[in-house]
Design a protein around this nucleic acid. Structure first.
Lengths: 186, 186
DNA sequence: CTCTCTATTCAGAAATTACCAAAACTACCG
DNA sequence: CGGTAGTTTTGGTAATTTCTGAATAGAGAG
């Protein structure tokens, strides 16, 4: 390391800053750690993969914090590590296709949040069937809920598996989707 | 108040208990206060509207906490106050239709979480257009994101406005929806 | 093998959030 | 007025989450 001070912090354009800060806030509302969301936003906007220390510098958070955040983002598979010739450091890049990001995050959230609920609901319904001690109202409510969630997630699974190209087509149908579905279903 | 101890806590069946506890846990993952979610679960399972003090007793939480939770649930419009003849206390009941609950909560979350993001994204794109200082990559990324979110919420709005009956039909189409949409969109 | 650069892990500090009890206040009613 | 309901606010504690700095581990160059 030279006697010079470190390279000045990677400055962000005002717009990039605004987006990253907002993304961080939205992250917290979505149960996602603010820093994790900010790191993702930064990588999403970056034309090149970035090394961890540069991310830490740019966002002004601890290096270790970045390490943890990157690990989590990799766990979600929306960020991956790449290598740059002549640089020993890991570099990270985000998926850029927004539909792909949405798909991956949705599936993961479903797996973590909906599936356990489906299991519990199913257990509840089983238990109440095996031992119906006058709580027929509870049974009715839980059965309703279970059926609804099962159907809803089934539909979700279908849509989420659509390739990006097909989705673009569907999105162009705006204003007609409900009519179409309504007719076929009616 | 008599010298007798208060009426014994409203006991819950094991199944009701299990569901309420789980719903509370899921609530926290969804950014919803645990108590709020538990109160909702209790009301959802209750055949009759319940007064606040009974809820507090059954869930073993502070009366003031129940008051706050009920207020929040009413804010979401999935719980409403009703009155029982001969009882001056407010009683509270939950909407029982699961599709209705889902619809209302989704719309509210969209309003609180997606709409602000759309605004910020739009502002960002405007600013970058007005002052394009070499960050064409940022512009591209943000435009992508904005278009995707706009299209997605448009579709969402359509689906969410479907009456419960129409939905049931669509849900029966499982396995065919994507095919249908694919054909029309292709 | 040692030195340097890099990445990860971990204990504790700091911040945030959840919850409660009590008090103050409104409102209604007999 | 006095009694019952209900809400809001406050002050405080407990629990959880987030973040950091220091320690640790690994990998490659010399």
């Amino acid at each position: 390391m030279s006697v010079h001070t470190r390279t000045s912090p990677n400055s962000l354009t005002p717009v990039a800053q605004k987006f990253i800060l907002h993304w961080g806030e939205m992250g917290t509302r979505w149960g996602i750690n603010r820093t994790v969301a900010q790191v993702h936003a930064l990588l999403f906007l970056s034309p090149q993969p970035l090394p961890a220390d540069e991310i830490a510098e740019t966002l002004a958070v601890a290096r270790s914090n970045v390490s943890t955040s990157l690990r989590e983002l990799q766990g979600w598979r929306i960020v991956r590590v790449v290598h740059v010739l002549g640089d020993r450091r890991d570099h990270f890049e985000s998926i850029k296709d927004v539909w792909e990001i949405f798909r991956i995050v949705s599936e993961e959230r479903k797996r973590r949040e909906i599936d356990p609920t489906l299991r519990v609901l199913d257990e509840c319904v089983q238990e109440i069937k095996a031992n119906p001690q006058g709580d027929s109202y509870t049974r009715e409510r839980l059965t309703d809920m279970l059926e609804f969630l099962t159907a809803m997630t089934g539909l979700f699974e279908e849509v989420i598996r659509m390739p990006a190209a097909a989705l673009k087509g569907v999105l162009k149908l705006r204003g007609k989707v409900v009519t179409m579905l309504g007719k076929k279903a009616g």
